[in-house]
Write a protein that binds this DNA or RNA. Sequence first.
RNA 1: GCGAAAGUGGCGGAAUUGGCAGACGCGCUAGAUUUAGGAUCUAGUGGGCAAUCCCCGUGUGGGUUCGAGUCCCACCUUUCGCACCA
Length: 831
Amino acid sequence: MQDYYPFQKVEEKWLKNWEESDLHKTGDDPDKENYYVLEMFPYPSGNLHMGHVRVYSIGDVIARYKRMQGYNVLHPMGWDAFGLPAENAAIKHGNIHPKEWTWDNIAHMKEQMKAMGLSYDWDREVTTAAEDYYKWTQWFFTKMFNDDLAYRKESTVNWCPSCETVLANEQVVNESCERCGTEVDKRDLEQWFLKITDYAERLLDDHQLLDGWPEKVKLMQKNWIGRSEGTRVNFKLPKLDKDLEVFTTRPDTLFGATYMVLAPEHPYVRELTEGTDKEEEVETFVKKVKKQKEQERTSAESEKLGLFTGAYAVNPVNNKEIPIYIANYVLMGYGTGAIMAVPAHDQRDFDFARKYDIEIKAVIQPEDKEEELVGKKMDEAYAGDGYLINSGKYNDLSVEEAFDKMAEDFSEAGFLKVETNYRLRDWLISRQRYWGAPIPIVYCDDCGPVAVPEEDLPVKLPHDVEFSPTGESPLKKVESFVNTTCPECGAPARRETDTMDTFVDSSWYFMRYADPKNEKQPFTKKNVDQWFPVDQYIGGIEHAILHLLYARFFTKVVHDMDLTDHVEPFTNWLAQGMVLKDGAKMSKSKGNVVDPKDILAEYGADTARLFILFASPPEKDLEWSDKGVEGADRFLNRVWRFVTENLDLIKNAEGKVDVDVLDKEAKKLYRSMHASIKKVTEDVGERLNFNTAISAIMELTNEVYSYLNDRSSENTDAVLIKDVAENIVLLLAPFAPFITEELWEYLGHAGNVHQAVWPEYDEEALKKDEITIVIQVNGKVRDKINVAADAPETKVKEKAMAAEKIQSYLEDGNLIKTIYIPKKLVNLVIQ
RNA sequence: GCGAAAGUGGCGGAAUUGGCAGACGCGCUAGAUUUAGGAUCUAGUGGGCAAUCCCCGUGUGGGUUCGAGUCCCACCUUUCGCACCA
């Protein structure tokens, strides 16, 4: 027997045992409840980093804990295997194909995950770049195409000049590429979109089903979807004999509209100015604004620039002619790309009107001001509540009343309609890169774009391709791929050559795990709904909008296709914090990277897992500490020594603990044991606070050491020691799966500790005969007394008054009041 | 600018419902063991003080309460999200 834990030998032994006994196979006992725990699958970059170690350790503790609690647990793993790094690596190294690179990386990372002791059911492994997976990604696309949820349109899109592909709005952060940080350009291109806007309302409403999500994330999604209730109003354009439609949330201020603004990209700009003396000036201005956007994108508050078009619109509420401007502060992408400007009640309009000397007309009077608002005298716009002025028959109505009344009147008059507007745009999924799932569409001169029929799926990604990025899909140059026949009429036709955004691949993988080998369907409803929705999902906050919004959208689409009864994919979501070193995120450029490989080699998997779970609660950032790792290692060895050094004692122990024969110290230890079981059970099962769960196991370990140190071996209660040893091993098992297997075997058990039953605590054992009552004087602790746990209030107060350190306070002042909190404290209020 | 979260020893963190602030770990101090070091075990460790008494102490200032790290108000700092969204 060694006095230190020989982790290499033990890990090797149990890895083999687990593999041979198929220990982590997904349970299917019909008498047990099902539990689905999932960590976001990784991009197979080739190596695990500490962030991976953290998120997978968290998921593994939950999976192992739930199994011991008697659940069938689905705990799968897979690979988000399409994407740019594979191509970039291939380009950089020259002689390796993205597919080969990806599959090599997967094999390598899988070994590392196994070495960490992660309990995945590898029979359900899913790889998005595998043909049997992306066949169904394509299938979903064709279904959505046939249901008008996938469509093609030309629009201004975001272009990353470094990745040489378009990006979805969600993938642009601060006007830069979410992946590589390069500033994005705008390009006018025809691209494929998924109609996520059709689901905007449901994505928003169903947040109410997500009590198990952080409020912060729901708020971020809410802001992203950006619902605003307002109205569309038509202003007349006499010159064109057309209407100019604007969106406004403040129809109550219609009488205060003193000018209109068009986005420079608005189609009417040309129509209104063509052939006039303003034409040239306007054209120059539009060009300037388009250029300026690029230059000024980093500045917080860009200056409002505008130009009068020479044209006028007619305000439908009072038939007044008001000038039409174009300006940089109105965006084509929101609303109708045109606004009515109410400078008195909108700060942006106010600034603009002041700059270009346009009339400011107040129409809302604040309740608390006696003097009537006058546009000329205002210093800033007034956006608050009040009652209407200068608004004809609507005067004196409140803002709210006026909104409803005007909406009603003007709807009847025919120039207004109530409408909800969203900031959310449709999801652009075309990518001009090689390593992705080809969009399964064929273009036929006669039939137009046609979806590839199910029996012809997958549209296979050709292997031999020159994939250096050129701004166009590399597939364009592969004639054998491009040239095909129309599935409908059989005429020669061309394939779509763009591939899909990898976020499409990851929008449904969590359903495929439930039925990973299905060759006829992406999955059956029966198999998905056996596990769905995911009970606990764990991943990085950076996906708060991207992946999580897309996954929710897909789930609703799948629901509408009647492939699941559920409308939300993830019941509970834990956003785990980052792993930092020296206060900063680990990165090669900062040179502060700690490689999990080194930690595993030096301390073993259990220590690495234990430290990373102990150092910080899971949702907070974690500061890496080499000393902290040593502490975790020390603790595991302490447990190792406790069990191995007391094996003779434990082996001779028979029967169960008889509480009645325990002496005082033994009783205390027995109670601590049950308190620890309770604490760990609640911390792991309900609060997901693994750091405090581990500290509770440490405390119990300390207590048993102190019990053993304080007495000679002949009056040690062997049965109690055995009970404590077994419980420490059981409680520790989800955190440190290897050492606990070995110790469980030492303790004389034949099966795996991970198949043992999670210990239960005894409420009876937690009760104390005697409790400590704190005695306060005016809220400050002055003394403590011990009383019987069932002592009545009068008895406790009596004893409190008699406490030694209280006497001087009682003598020096008058007792006014006594507060008694049962089983906790007595507070004497003395003046 | 708007919104959210956070601020506790030398460090990571705990205090779950308004009731003993600092659990647990790191670090540090002393002792035991050892030829020595390491490892291990024991005791101590918020600040002030000779003290087990006492005073102070959870970002700052106020408030509510018998009692506040916890609740309320104002402010400061940090982090995150949004930022011409009509």
